[in-house]
Nucleic acid binder design. Structure first.
Length: 491
DNA sequence: TTAGGGTTAG
């Protein structure tokens, strides 16, 4: 309302209002997602400067209109550091990490600007999401080369990037070399250790942080709880959870409940986990149910699984996807194909869309993407041939036996074997073996959790080919070496 | 003195 009145004044008095005032209003519209009004004002402004352009673009990037932002960015007469950061962070915000890195490279070619702290934070985050270690390392070297002071923000981003690219050793080195550590620096290191299944180390670091007089925030505690969860440190995790309020004045949010439920359920204490859910002061969301359901599958508890399935079907259908897959997998794991069929019919009826499995692998600084049953990669025929050969060798030399009980539908054994052999992480590993030298570790990032079959395949492949294979899935790292996984099969 | 950044459980 207030904005509209000022808008009318600006139009009426036109030139009497300087660009500064117009920009302020433009920014007001942009912040609140009123992009049409921002665009109208921009079109009517007598004079525009780089701030006007950047404000308008920022309005588009922050509200999911990246296409329009890209158009304007290419039209704008001159750009400064802020304009580049707006575009790059816009791409990071919608998960177009490769585009973020592409724009960063373009920025480096623009003589009029120099990369600064915000842009490094953005691109390191893009590398972290992609698991693009080579590019992340290159950016680290670049930061050192231009002599940018290592602020705690830059350290935090580097630690996060290395941890998420599978190099917890490098993350540790950065952490140890950082003199100014704030809560974010500690948190990114703790979360990194947790993600790697190093729960004891995460707890130790957490104690050091407290001893250093740094107060944890709710994200630090998520990192700690997650570490306990992935390492089976049930009592330690519960005591951190119970002390949150008293010791640090942080009341548990649904995310913290999610961690505790996961902690108990993973350890097989399903009923205790269910009790926690029932005692929660807030409504459980799909995430909580999924954590429980996934452990029901691991521990083959069909009864509880069915009860959870009922709860899930009462939630908003747009959240059902992953939940139904888990339920179906649970039935499949105990051979209840009639139930699997029923879930499948429900899914069809409710027109539930599933997330496609997707894996990335970086080879020579280029990130390659594979979808489940991919036919898009230019070398796909060659990759399929390689995969057949790899799985054959994994069977003979690595003791791999196809585990098809995770397949969603009741297919023939042979068809099921086909279905799991198309999983994106298997395509990625075949591509990795095809295009890297022997002895080089293979690093894969996956958008979903790795399935049981792929997990045992990776173990066998690591033995048969004497290769270290690191898979970062949706929840943690699996480092396969000589037939074993760093998660000790606790996932 | 109007535009820009990150960590986050499953």
């Amino acid at each position: 309302m207030y904005g509209r009145n000022i808008h009318a004044l600006v139009i009426k008095f036109g030139c009497e209002f300087d660009t500064f005032v117009c920009n302020s209003l433009l920014n007001f519209y942009s912040i609140f997602g009123r992009t049409d009004e921002a665009q109208n004002l921009f079109d009517e402004m007598p004079q525009r400067d780089v701030v006007s352009w950047t404000s308008l673009i920022s309005g588009y990037t922050k509200h999911g209109k990246m296409g329009r932002a890209t158009e304007l960015f290419s039209e704008m007469p001159d750009r400064n550091e802020v304009s580049w950061v707006v575009m790059i962070s816009g791409f990071v915000g919608i998960g177009r990490y490769n585009d973020a890195l592409r724009y960063f490279n373009d920025m480096l070619c623009d003589d009029k600007v120099k990369p600064n702290e915000p842009v490094f934070v953005c691109v390191l985050s893009a590398c972290a999401h992609l698991g693009a270690l080579d590019q992340g390392k290159w950016i680290h070297v670049y930061i050192d080369k231009i002599g940018m002071s290592k602020s705690s923000n830059i350290s935090t981003s580097l630690i996060d990037m290395y941890a998420k690219c599978g190099r917890i050793d490098c993350a540790n080195r950065v952490f140890n070399g950082t003199s100014k550590r704030d809560v974010l620096t500690w948190t990114s290191m703790i979360s990194g250790l947790s993600m790697h299944g190093l729960g004891e180390d995460a707890l130790r670091l957490f104690s050091q942080m407290l001893a250093a007089g740094i107060k944890p925030d709710n994200i630090t505690l998520l990192g700690v709880l997650n570490g306990c969860s992935h390492s089976g440190l049930v009592e330690e995790g519960c005591s951190v959870f119970n002390d949150m309020e008293n010791l640090w004045g942080i009341s548990p949010k649904i995310e913290h409940y999610g961690c505790v439920v996961d902690l108990l359920a993973r350890a097989g204490q399903l009923e205790r986990a269910f009790e926690v859910v029932r005692g929660m002061p807030m409504e459980p969301d799909i995430v909580i149910w999924r954590a429980l359901l996934s452990s029901c599958r691991v521990h083959r508890n069909v009864d509880l699984g069915e009860r959870i399935g009922d709860h899930i079907s009462q939630l908003d259908p747009s959240f059902h996807g992953g939940g139904y897959v888990l339920l179906s997998n649970l039935y499949a794991s105990v051979g209840r194909w009639d139930r699997v069929d029923r879930v499948r019919k429900q899914m069809n009826k409710k027109k539930i869309e599933l997330n496609t499995g997707c894996s990335w692998i970086e080879v020579d600084g280029v990130v390659h993407e594979f979808l489940a049953a991919d036919k898009l990669h230019p070398r796909i025929t060659e990759i399929h041939e390689k995969l057949n050969e790899v799985l054959k060798r994994a069977r003979i030399e690595g003791g791999y036996v196809t585990n098809t009980n995770q397949v969603l539908f009741d297919l023939s054994e042979e068809e099921k074997e086909q279905a799991v052999s198309w999983h994106s992480e298997k395509l990625a590993v075949a591509f990795g073996l095809l295009s890297t030298d022997s002895g080089t570790p293979i690093r894969i990032v996956k958008n979903l959790r790795i399935c049981e079959d792929c997990h045992s395949a990776m173990k066998a492949i690591s033995r048969a080919f004497s290769r270290e294979i690191v898979v970062r899935d949706r929840s943690r790292f699996h480092s396969f070496r000589e037939g074993n996984c760093s998660c000790k099969d606790y996932w």
